[in-house]
């Protein structure tokens, strides 16, 4: 048993990489993940990744914001300390709407983005789990788990056929792990 943890097929062109994914899948080789310098459309369907449900989260956060804003204003201006301003009723709903809107957006944006950071493990200072340093530059990298898929020569051949410019055998999971 070798120490190889991941086999990386490094492509120079997104279409060739897509082709590589197809080839691997035709041969029942599971793909660990794919690292690209830009979003590739259609890849999530191929890898069977479900549509993001972050929009539902965003909606819930937004509604929370609306309610919080209303509660805050209502408490301050109507319940806690009524002030006669220009003869208007204390509960002047139209005047509440601008702040309700702003807080809806604020809660929605922050709630959603923080959910996103949490679900994809992004936070300041996190050690980048990078397998190939050029995957953020000009390479489209398919990573195959070498422990689960033992026929390394077959994988090698398939990736090369699809147009991989380079095949790497990583003995460490993440090369940039510090």
């Amino acid at each position: 048993m070798s120490d190889i943890k991941y086999i990386l097929g490094s492509f120079g062109d997104p279409d060739e990489m897509m082709h590589g994914i197809e080839k691997l899948q035709e041969n029942n080789i599971s793909i660990h993940d794919v690292y690209t310098p830009m979003p590739i459309h259609g890849i999530e369907a191929k890898l069977g990744i479900k549509r993001s449900r972050i929009d539902i989260a965003a909606f819930c956060f937004g509604i929370t914001g609306t309610c919080c804003a209303f509660a805050l204003i209502y408490f301050c201006a109507v319940i806690d300390w009524r002030v006669n301003i220009g003869g208007k009723p204390s509960f002047a709903l139209p005047d509440f709407i601008p702040i309700m809107f702003e807080l809806t957006v604020l809660f929605c944006a922050f709630g959603m983005v923080l959910t996103y950071y949490a679900s994809t493990h992004l936070f300041p200072g996190r050690a980048p789990r990078v397998m190939d340093l050029r995957a953020t530059d000009d390479r489209f990298v398919i990573a195959v788990d070498a422990k689960d898929n033992v026929e390394h020569t077959v994988i090698d051949g398939l990736l090369k056929d699809a147009g991989a410019l380079e095949i790497k055998y990583n003995e460490r999971k993440y090369i940039s792990y510090e």
Partner: peptide
């Protein structure tokens, strides 16, 4: 830059969520 990159790796899921988030952020912005 590593600290500020939040450990971005460019995996499929990250990108897919990234795009969804960008679109909604655009919608509310």
């Amino acid at each position: 830059y590593s600290i500020f990159s939040f450990g971005w790796s460019g995996s499929v899921k990250t990108w897919q969520r990234f795009e969804a988030v960008s679109l909604i952020l655009a919608g509310i912005s």
